[in-house]
Amino acid sequence: MSINVLGQRLQACSLDPLTGFFRDGCCQHDESDVGQHIVCAVMTEQFLTFSKLAGNDLSTPRPEYGFSGLKAGDRWCLCARRWLEALQKGAAPQIVLAATHEEILDLISLETLVQYAVDRPHF
């Protein structure tokens, strides 16, 4: 069972569009996922532009891969380092804590993640 950053069972990030390294809707991974697709992020125009300029175009449809392209408001499992890079450049999208894998805590503090959360916990 995968655990989220709140120490609870990892929740689904998105089934439409279907996301996750395993395309099961969850931001879980294993050693074959070199990019660590573990951050459930809510797309924004700012982030999609940032990502495209950084070499990862998430907004353009790629029908040959069954990918319709992301738009603002969609949830998507992002690579941990891409979210951190966006944070450092002022373009980080909000995240869903319940659907973000606990391993992100190796790179980013829970306090920082909570600042970007759409599902802020009440401590």
Score class of each variant (00 low, 15 high):
122 H>V: 15
19 T>C: 07
22 F>S: 09
29 H>C: 13
30 D>S: 14
78 L>M: 14
2 S>E: 11
96 V>Q: 14
25 G>C: 11
34 V>R: 14
22 F>Y: 14
118 V>L: 07
83 W>T: 08
45 E>G: 12
102 E>T: 14
77 C>K: 00
73 G>D: 12
45 E>T: 14
92 A>C: 10
64 E>Y: 07
36 Q>H: 12
11 Q>H: 13
16 D>E: 15
66 G>M: 03
54 A>L: 11
94 Q>N: 15
84 L>Y: 08
38 I>E: 02
105 L>C: 07
86 A>P: 11
56 N>Y: 11
42 V>W: 05
22 F>K: 12
104 I>D: 05
21 F>L: 10
56 N>E: 08
22 F>H: 14
9 R>N: 12
65 Y>A: 06
95 I>A: 03
122 H>G: 10
21 F>Y: 15
106 D>F: 10
67 F>R: 12
123 F>K: 14
110 L>V: 01
84 L>P: 06
98 A>Y: 01
37 H>F: 07
97 L>H: 06
9 R>S: 15
2 S>C: 01
104 I>E: 05
61 P>R: 03
79 C>A: 15
108 I>D: 00
118 V>K: 00
41 A>M: 07
65 Y>Q: 04
4 N>G: 00
29 H>F: 13
98 A>T: 09
113 L>G: 03
65 Y>G: 00
35 G>W: 15
79 C>Q: 09
27 C>A: 03
76 W>S: 02
100 T>K: 05
97 L>S: 13
65 Y>M: 04
119 D>R: 04
88 Q>N: 12
44 T>N: 13
16 D>F: 09
56 N>I: 08
82 R>W: 05
10 L>D: 06
90 G>A: 11
62 R>C: 05
53 L>M: 07
86 A>R: 05
101 H>C: 13
117 A>L: 02
48 L>Q: 03
112 T>C: 03
123 F>V: 15
106 D>C: 08
66 G>R: 07
121 P>I: 11
11 Q>L: 10
6 L>E: 01
2 S>K: 05
110 L>T: 06
18 L>M: 13
61 P>H: 01
38 I>Q: 01
75 R>T: 07
70 L>Q: 05
95 I>Y: 08
8 Q>N: 04
96 V>R: 10
18 L>C: 09
24 D>L: 02
20 G>D: 02
43 M>Q: 02
106 D>R: 14
28 Q>Y: 11
62 R>L: 08
15 L>K: 11
119 D>H: 04
109 S>L: 09
62 R>W: 01
22 F>C: 12
116 Y>H: 15
37 H>T: 12
15 L>P: 00
56 N>H: 09
11 Q>S: 07
121 P>L: 05
89 K>H: 12
32 S>R: 15
